[in-house]
Simulated assay, not measured.
Amino acid sequence: MSFKKETPLANAVFWAARKGNLALLQLLLNSGRVDVDCKDGYGTTALMVASYSAHYECVRELIMQGADINLQRETGSTALFFASQQGHNDIVKLLFEFGASTEFRTEDGGTALSAACQCAHSRVVETLLKHGASVHDQLNDGATALFLASQEGHVTVIRQLLSSGAKVNQPREDGTAPLWMAAQRGHSEVVKVLLLRGADRDADRKDGSTALFKAAHKGHCNVIEELLKFSPSLGLLKNGSTALHAAVMSGNPKTVKLLLKANADPALPNKVSLRHADYNILYTYY
């Protein structure tokens, strides 16, 4: 966390909060010469700094001195957001004891829950959900907490969110669903969990590509195997191409071989043109 220093006393308060120097923090606050909610040029408060830095006693002292728990930084972040982002579950619980809210959002639409899910802090996720955090909140681009966890491959968090009612097929605004993103990133265990919980294997993005097509293009064989277990169909895209096209055109013989073993039809539709080298890859393994 970076912040602009304002006054010498505010500077000292921020330093004490960041370093966890409780004695100095108490001395400064008890002097009556510095506001407990003093801010830097970005709107950062000492409570945010202490929460980010995992200094429990400093957080408690600031709260007892009257710090406003729900103040927002210039970016919209709160003390709860920072504690959740960093995985400090004891501080998250403490903030909730004194009235922290899960409703505040950052400028990109992020919440404490989305931050914890993206960073795989499952204990924090559990605490946030118990205190009313919504699994349905979305970033400005439409990404849900489930989407973010799927993107990063955080299986435990994904199971928590699905058990709390997260919509497995909720896409971003560009049509990208959690399954598509997990397949694109090569997270085979995530793909398996999402499929078992009802993810639509053949849902396509606005560009027409499916999870299977993208996995084939990226050469993620473990992901392809999971997708084919769920359905042996290669799924014809709107432009007439299939996952086999993607594998061939990306020049990945291992992926081509896998798809052919799955009884993929090597008679590729004429709508998609392939280079001579691509045909060589295909028929080497057919």
Results as ranks from 00 to 15, higher is better:
I63W: 05
Q85V: 00
Q65N: 13
T255E: 07
M48Q: 15
L162F: 01
P8I: 01
V135Y: 08
T44L: 11
A246Q: 09
G186N: 10
A116E: 03
A149L: 04
G175P: 01
F81A: 04
L27C: 06
G186L: 13
K167A: 01
K229Q: 02
V256P: 14
F96D: 12
L259N: 05
L27R: 11
A133G: 08
A12M: 04
D174I: 07
K271I: 08
A10Y: 09
L258V: 11
L71W: 07
K39Q: 15
S163Y: 00
T45R: 14
G153T: 04
G153D: 01
Y285M: 08
V168G: 01
R123E: 15
E6C: 09
K218R: 15
N11P: 00
H217A: 09
L212K: 01
L212R: 05
L47M: 08
G175E: 02
T144H: 12
F82E: 14
H276Y: 14
D278T: 06
A183Y: 03
T144N: 09
M1Q: 06
T156A: 12
A23C: 07
K206G: 03
V36F: 03
F147I: 11
Q184T: 02
I91Y: 10
V272R: 08
A112I: 03
V223K: 01
S150M: 05
V223F: 02
D108N: 13
V155H: 06
L236Q: 07
V248L: 13
E173A: 10
A267Y: 04
G99L: 14
S31L: 03
T106E: 10
D174E: 04
Q72C: 10
F96R: 08
G186R: 14
G99P: 04
K39C: 12
G109Y: 07
N169Q: 03
D207F: 00
V256K: 11
A262S: 04
F81M: 09
K271E: 15
T111M: 14
G142W: 14
E57A: 14
T78M: 10
L194D: 15
M181W: 02
D202Q: 09
V193H: 10
K218I: 09
A199G: 10
S77Y: 12
G208C: 10
A203P: 04
Y52R: 10
S84H: 14
S51T: 09
G32I: 04
L28C: 11
G165C: 07
F81W: 13
V155N: 15
C38A: 13
A133W: 12
L47I: 08
G208H: 04
K39E: 15
L28P: 05
P232C: 06
I63F: 06
R105Y: 01
Q170P: 10
R159N: 12
Q184L: 01
N222T: 03
A262F: 03
L268P: 03
N263V: 00
N21C: 06
A143S: 15
I63R: 05
L195D: 02
F104Y: 07
L28A: 13
A267H: 06
T106G: 06
A133L: 14
